[in-house]
Design a protein around this nucleic acid. Structure first.
Length: 545
DNA sequence: GGTGGCTGCCC
DNA sequence: ATTCTGC
DNA sequence: GCAGAATGGGCAGCCACC
């Protein structure tokens, strides 16, 4: 029997309503066992709010704005009601559930929407190009919503928004797959690493076909990530062994697949970004999968923004190539001449990598052997001096594993000065932060008054957010619904990794990775930092490069 | 032909 | 990307 | 310690609209 959207939505609702991970896993495992081969991969992708595998070039291209338009037409709700409902839940799916209850089109006699129907419709939305494409996408969505019960609409919208908020994501889904088919979790996770698509993992788990698993050239795999540590001391004490330290480049992480004829390049999200970097289309000569970083470089490092301009560009002109050339720093090898190397120790992988004798624009990431706190500190400082972002530190015996599991790789990042800023506006959050003022717009002072320099949301505890909501409500001078303009009273200390020129805020600058260090109840507006200080930090960091 | 909203994806 | 929280 | 949730700035492509 074909899987229906209704049953899928009911399962999601059950998952959401329990906070126990074990129960979630049981619910999902039971559901998956009842699915056909055809429906299984689809259901698994939908559970992680995906429609296509990560490496698939298709994108549905339907999101908040399109959904709001479609809901408006389907339900006949006016702008005000739409906004109020969305604000109430902080989740467009939940808003859709409520709104669709009084939709104009009824569907009592329709056959139920299947996951396969849904997939075909979304594929059609994704595939339509050119004039009328936006209209087509909205028509597809309205067609689907017309067939949906409130609960179905809720989860359809959640999938499209990319946020399920049911307390289940890929990690728990893998556990559920292991339970559903009686497989070892380790095997299922390994499958996930290699195939990098939860739909494909599901089929492998179903068949128990783990032994046929091999990395495939031109098929991207997941990347190994590192955990952040705060000091050389912490690193030295945690590992207490010889380590490999590499500079942390501010570029784009990339997997390069090469045969003797062809090169393909994949990003961290497994997108095919080959076309953005023609100067890297030099076959290595043997079949390899490399891991490394694409870095913009011309007589020295270039800012990340220059690299971004090339990133999703369709055509790379000679001008772009001249202005922002890139190089590749390879630091790992996952596959070599038909063999997978991910379970070999880093030391061995590095030796194979170096035997390749790479030529510019391919370079080896430099590798320093460190052990003591002092050695790590020295390597870290030399990295900053050269304009890099910090240090990557790896155990020589580490296998290549996905995600942050195991802490075999760690990173040390440079700390920049913090700024004291004042909150000038606040916005309501989403999901579990619905109804709370959790997102703060802040400013520094200048001769011409306060100047906005950024927004931040992270760094406060739930309790602090609750407290802030109360205080900010009292300070509100203008209520714009979703956003509130507040009296500039509350001072925050914000940290960031960089300052960039920007037209986004009226200060002319913006922060990269802003986060709240702490609330400065002890400080008043008069004591916040100045725009001049911002300029100074900006100048200082650009001089370095 | 220019501009701005929307979307997706890089950090 | 970063940060917090529940299990 | 893991997994999940909430959310920052900047960019290009694409399409709708003037």
């Amino acid at each position: 029997m074909a899987a229906t959207l209704l049953e899928f939505a009911e399962v999601c609702e059950k998952i959401r309503s329990t906070s126990s991970k074990k129960q979630k896993i049981t619910i999902v495992a039971n559901y998956l066992r009842g699915l056909s081969r055809e429906d299984l991969p689809l259901a698994c992708r939908l559970l992680t709010s995906r429609v296509f595998p990560p490496w698939d070039a298709r994108a549905v291209n339907i999101s908040y704005s399109t959904i709001l338009d479609a809901l408006k037409e389907i339900t006949g709700a006016d702008e005000k009601r739409l906004k109020a409902t969305y604000l109430k839940y902080g989740d467009l799916g939940s808003a859709a559930e409520e709104l669709i209850q009084d939709k104009k089109v009824t569907t009592l006699l329709q056959t139920p929407l299947t996951l396969q129907n849904l997939y075909s419709a979304l594929d059609s939305a994704a595939s339509k190009k050119g004039e009328g494409a936006a209209e087509h996408r909205e028509r597809v969505l309205k067609g689907l919503l017309a067939l949906c019960s409130p609960l179905e609409a809720k989860y359809l919208v959640k999938v499209l928004c990319g946020e399920m908020r049911i307390g289940l994501d890929e990690g728990l889904l893998e556990e559920a797959l292991a339970v559903a088919y009686g497989r070892g979790l380790k095997k299922v996770r390994e499958a996930g690493l290699v195939v990098a698509d939860i739909g494909e993992s599901a089929l492998i788990a179903l068949d128990g076909a783990f032994e046929t698993l091999k990395l495939k050239l031109f098929h991207p795999t997941n990347f190994m990530l590192a955990e952040e540590m705060s000091s050389p001391q912490e690193v030295a004490e945690y590992f207490r062994c010889e380590l490999y330290a590499e500079y942390k480049y501010d570029g784009v992480r990339a997997q390069i697949h090469s045969s003797d004829k062809e090169v393909r390049i994949f990003s961290r999200r497994l997108e095919d970004i080959t076309n953005s970097f023609p100067e890297l289309h030099i076959p290595v000569g043997r079949e390899v999968i490399l891991d490394g970083e694409i870095v913009p470089y011309k007589d020295g490092l270039l800012p990340f923004q220059k690299l971004q301009q090339r990133l999703h560009r369709k055509t790379i002109t000679q001008d772009v190539l001249n202005e922002t050339p890139v190089v590749y720093f390879a630091f790992d090898i996952l596959y070599y001449n038909g063999e997978t190397y991910i379970d070999k120790p880093l030391k061995e992988r590095r030796a194979i990598l170096e035997s390749l004798d790479l030529k510019p624009p391919f370079y080896y990431a430099n590798q320093m052997k460190v052990r003591s706190e002092d050695e790590i500190k020295e390597a870290f400082e030399s990295s900053l001096k050269l304009g890099y972002e910090g240090l990557m530190i790896k155990r020589p015996d580490s296998e290549y594993t996905p995600g942050k599991r195991g802490k075999k790789w760690v990173k040390l990042k440079k700390e920049l000065a913090t700024l004291d800023v004042v909150i000038v506006a606040a916005e309501y959050g989403h999901g579990k932060r619905a109804g709370l003022l959790s997102d703060y717009t802040f400013a520094v002072k200048s001769k011409d008054g306060l100047k906005v320099i950024g927004k931040a949301y992270s760094g406060l505890t739930d309790e602090e957010i609750l407290d802030m909501t109360e205080k900010l409500n009292k300070l509100t001078v203008k209520d714009l619904g979703h956003k509130k303009i507040v009296e500039p009273k509350i001072v925050l200390e914000v940290a960031f990794n960089n300052i960039q020129r920007s037209s986004r805020h009226d200060s002319g600058y913006a922060l990269r990775f802003p986060r709240i260090k702490r609330i400065r109840w002890d400080k008043s507006v008069d004591e916040i930092d100045t725009l001049d200080k911002v300029k100074e930090i900006y100048e200082q960091q650009t001089r370095k490069k």
